[in-house]
Amino acid sequence: MSDSEDDYMSAEILQGVSDQRVGIATSRAHKRQLQINSRFEESREPTRPKKPASHAEREKERRDEALAKPISHESKGFALMAKMGFKPGMTLGKQREDEIRITEPISLEIKANRTGLGHEAEVVQERNDRVEAVMQKMKEQAAKHEELIEDYSNRRRLDEKVKQLVKDIRACRKVCEELDHRIDRTVPRIAWYWRSYKVIKDDEKEVRNYHKKVVDEEEEEYKYSNGQPAPADPNWDVTTPMDELENNLSNINTYLRDNHFYCIWCGANYCSPEDMAEHCPGNTRRAHHGDDDHD
């Protein structure tokens, strides 16, 4: 190699070589130029030839085109009908005012499968029957759901009525005991009119904080608040029959109204039966509050 020729490893040769990859834009202008070149190359590609129509498609096109045209006046059939008085736009046969007649030939319906005549209508009917069966089942499920909701609502209302009855009976018992004590009554007219309390014995006091002691009901002792012997206190709750609760409430309420002129729902102690009859709306909760909890 002569001295006049540049070394291929010299700095001058290396500076002239650009480190640029093909297809990668180095600037916005370069990117724009690449896009233009790509579109140009795509436009030069030959267009794909259209796929020729199949024999069935060509036959269908010819059939539709022929059926779309009216009957030609040059056909032999039209000539024979014209001799019998037929004119374009007329219908065949006798015409009636209330009857709809066709003026064009009936269109063809090509059957391309091997099913029998009327099979499509049968398939549609079966599909409609399945849809109707599903709808009927959904209606039955919806009705059953509504029935369950109504049953649940009725049970909730019944529980609320029973709770209100128990609450009213407890209030009547408390007032009855207080009013009876004012007139120096030592025992209630009916045993359950007053609340009774279980007597806790000394040996039970020692063990009640450590474990539950089982005692027979016959050995348990109950007393009223004034120390008089009493029967076991009734345990009324939501499991008690409603008829029993309504009967007990009616009995103790009648006792309070007749003997003490007291109305549990008014919360007032009247002076006389006349005063109660004048100012008290009635002897039921409904008469006072206008609700349907119970009579």
Rank of each mutant, 00 (worst) to 15 (best):
D64L: 14
D7C: 07
K69T: 08
K223N: 08
H73C: 13
Q35R: 08
G227P: 00
R63E: 15
E5I: 06
E120R: 14
A133T: 03
E204I: 04
P188M: 03
R285K: 13
E274N: 06
V187W: 04
A112T: 11
E97H: 05
V166P: 00
D293F: 04
D233Q: 14
I264S: 06
S10G: 08
T103F: 14
R32A: 15
L165Y: 02
D151E: 15
E45V: 12
D180I: 00
R285D: 03
H260Y: 08
N209Q: 12
A230P: 02
D292W: 04
S272W: 02
N235F: 06
E177A: 11
W194K: 00
E122R: 09
D203A: 07
P52L: 15
S18F: 11
Y197W: 06
D295F: 13
G227V: 01
T284H: 02
E217C: 07
K87F: 13
E126Q: 12
I13Q: 08
W194R: 01
N253T: 07
L92M: 15
S225Q: 07
P281Q: 02
E99R: 10
G267M: 05
V214A: 15
E147H: 12
L249T: 00
I102E: 13
H119I: 04
A56P: 01
E41W: 09
A53R: 06
G23V: 03
T239G: 06
A11V: 07
A56E: 14
D202K: 05
R130M: 06
R208K: 15
F78R: 04
M81I: 02
R58A: 14
A29R: 08
E59F: 15
G227F: 06
E204R: 01
G118Y: 03
N235D: 13
C280Q: 01
L108N: 09
N248E: 14
L14V: 03
V166M: 05
P231Q: 07
A133E: 13
A121I: 03
V123T: 06
W265M: 03
R127T: 03
